[in-house]
Design a protein around this nucleic acid. Sequence first.
DNA 1: AATTATTTGTATCGTTCACTACAAAATACC
DNA 2: GGTATTTTGTAGTGAACGATACAAATAATT
Lengths: 199, 199
Amino acid sequence: MNDTNNSRPRGRPRRFDPGQGVATAQHLFHARGYDAVGVAEITSALGINPPSFYAAFGSKAGLYARVLERYATTDAIPLEDLLRPDRPLAESLAAVLEEAARRYVARPPAAGCLVLEGIGCDDEEARRIAAAYHRAALDRIRHSIAAVHPDTAQRLTDFVSVTMAGLSAEARNGIGLDRLLETARVAGRAVARELAAAG
Amino acid sequence: MNDTNNSRPRGRPRRFDPGQGVATAQHLFHARGYDAVGVAEITSALGINPPSFYAAFGSKAGLYARVLERYATTDAIPLEDLLRPDRPLAESLAAVLEEAARRYVARPPAAGCLVLEGIGCDDEEARRIAAAYHRAALDRIRHSIAAVHPDTAQRLTDFVSVTMAGLSAEARNGIGLDRLLETARVAGRAVARELAAAG
DNA sequence: AATTATTTGTATCGTTCACTACAAAATACC
DNA sequence: GGTATTTTGTAGTGAACGATACAAATAATT
């Protein structure tokens, strides 16, 4: 086991907190996207020099992996809480869509979903990392639907996925919470109707 | 008036067709995005050197403007044809969404909507150009809805806009025509139901 | 033939990109 | 005190970016 050791390590002590660096980088990446934020801007924001950056995070994509890890546990949509098995499915999915609308504009200028926007960036490694989180989230949604309506799980998951991707894009286009929420509710009613029609 | 003159201009003749260059650049931009395609790659694809490129198009963004102009008349969704005033609105909007699904995967690897993807790129000038086409398209859709249901025009336009943005993103994620079409139809039914509910 | 106008190819420009070589600094261990 | 270990700051790497300076080339005009 890792000894939760209070004794300091051997060499020269760090002058910055990598965890805080991940948080700062999260805001930068979320506000402007992976490609648009350079290492120079990050090191400047953290008050460190490039060697400290690479010693701590390995690479820009390595930092991005830690940023997404943090994002998944702090700002991403809490699917486990919203998709309870005892809850009516239509209600759960509507809650997911509304929560997306809220979170995508909750912390301006960090609009949209960090994962969904990361999928489309121009760096291959960053795309792979983001795509893994995307796949996991869709699997989670599809699993919840399939438990009740296995035959329409794929179709409804695709619709929810498209809606969330669209909400993220529109949030980044500056659309406000009220209009995003209206759209999420239209989509939520659509899900309910499809579920009812599927019997 | 411009004389449609057959006589050649004064200086050294061009060795390439700018119109063909716009077409080639359209495929490159559509397949990989504005940011990911460099001027060097374009000039290489056209078999020309940078000075010829800049003499013909002014700048990378200038070429992009001509690309979008071409795209709007050749590959974009023909809103004027689909949103006929004599057609039932629900049918028109469903047709727009289905047509989006089809076109967004019609010419791989040029997936998604060139305009919608351009809006999110990292170049300010290119974003502005793409956003103008986006605004025009949404105005056109909103106008058609408002003619019949002025009070729900904004809400439905937002829903259609989110759906199209999501379809474009998912098309770029590799989702195939069948699943995009299913999603488009779910969204189309949602539009019909909202229109019916609005009386 | 001389002049004017335009495009061409060659060879860059300066900037920004992610990333690193290297030695001094700062700590714990012996 | 001396050594080992780690991080630091300085100063850069090579590559890619969008965009150009410049003169030779090629045409119409005079």
